[in-house]
């Protein structure tokens, strides 16, 4: 075989790679992502009508959304929707719940300690690490410039 450099071959692969219909993906992400947020709006409106404080409305909404994400993941429906919606199902907090439930469920055979509980944060753990770390840094910055 004649020699191909990695660069040459990389270009060859790029030229032959299938072109994705990005527009369709974006449309799906927009509509499903938007729809999930509307569900969130409905829930928060419900809590607001009951006279809850802003903070409690936010917490209550998160809790319900997470519950729904976990339930639909367990029922095997969330990944079916995600196949079309992509980021529309990954980015909302329901996707965060999906990222926690799916490995936990998958690794049940490896036991409830290191299987379910250990694998739970495989995908979602980094979100907490980076989210909490940057929020502490942001708090310190805010303290300094206040």
């Amino acid at each position: 075989m004649k020699k191909y450099t990695k660069k040459e071959y990389g270009k060859m692969v790029e030229r032959s790679a299938p072109k994705t219909s990005m527009f369709q993906n974006l449309l799906w992400a927009f509509f499903i992502g938007g729809a999930i947020c509307v569900v969130g709006q409905l829930i928060s409106q419900y809590f607001r009508n009951r006279g809850w404080s802003i903070e409690n409305v936010a917490s209550g909404t998160s809790i319900i959304m997470v519950f729904l994400g976990a339930l639909f993941t367990g029922l095997g429906l969330y990944d079916k929707l995600a196949k079309f919606a992509g980021a529309g199902t990954i980015v909302p907090i329901t996707g965060f719940a999906n990222a926690i439930v799916s490995p936990a469920m998958e690794f049940k055979r490896e036991g409830y300690i290191l299987g379910v509980a250990g694998k739970m944060f495989v995908v979602a753990g980094p979100v907490l690490v980076y989210g909490i770390t940057t929020s502490v840094i942001a708090g310190v910055i805010y303290y300094l410039i206040r």
Partner: peptide, 17 residues
């Protein structure tokens, strides 16, 4: 799938390739 990629119920999108 569970060894090389993601859990079955994980909502990732398969890339075109």
């Amino acid at each position: 799938e569970r060894q090389f990629r993601f859990p079955l119920a994980y909502g990732g999108q398969r890339t075109p390739t």
